[in-house]
Amino acid sequence: MLKISFYIFLTFIYLGISSFTPSGKGPIGIVNERVFNNYFKGAPLSIILFDSFQTGLFIKTYYHKYKVIRGLKSTETVSVRVSKAFWFKNLKNHGMSLFRREEKQNATNFIVMPPGILYVGNRAYGQFEDHGSEIRNIWRFHGVYRHFTDYFYWGDFRPSQAFYSAAKYSMNREEPFYGLNNEFGTNGSVTKKYLKKEDHKKKREQFSFKKHLLKFL
């Protein structure tokens, strides 16, 4: 009994010390969207869920990969640990903006919205224009912000006035918005087409046992 207690104690000591080493610390942990405000500073700020994956064989750890966009400053990609509930909750939100902070009064918003919605409607970044007689009131970024369409994985998509109004309406009702025709989100047509992320499942499926065993010959 004494031996077992000693080994259990030793195991806790090992896990405790390991968690303080640089390799044991790992990325920051995020429980839910409410803590984004504490970890990500600056404005304007938009956090887009780029990818989600899990690691571990018996005990799973859940991760999100975010693209953090801060206006004209360079974007950064961060990986964070998240809670299991938050991970499963956002499985359908790939390519969506989970958190935004405006320049005006640093107002924050946690409602799941299409990427780039923070800048759409803001005349400092662009305006709604007519493109020919058939395409009316389509958002166009000013020249210096034209690369934003790449940041947000829009591709050829451009939000219309109707799109923007519907997004604002959903935001006021505190409901997520995936586009007028579900263009965004994990199963959104625009996201599926333009959001290129690392396919971890595909990578494992490319592994061939036969090729691996032939290495021994």
Partner: peptide, 22 residues
């Protein structure tokens, strides 16, 4: 390379050996 953590890493390996060897 990181001398600060060198001794801690060594001690961790020894503790792990004590746990695994039985």
């Amino acid at each position: 390379a990181n001398i600060q953590w060198y001794s801690i890493q060594a001690i961790l390996k020894i503790i792990l050996a004590i746990i695994i060897s039985p």
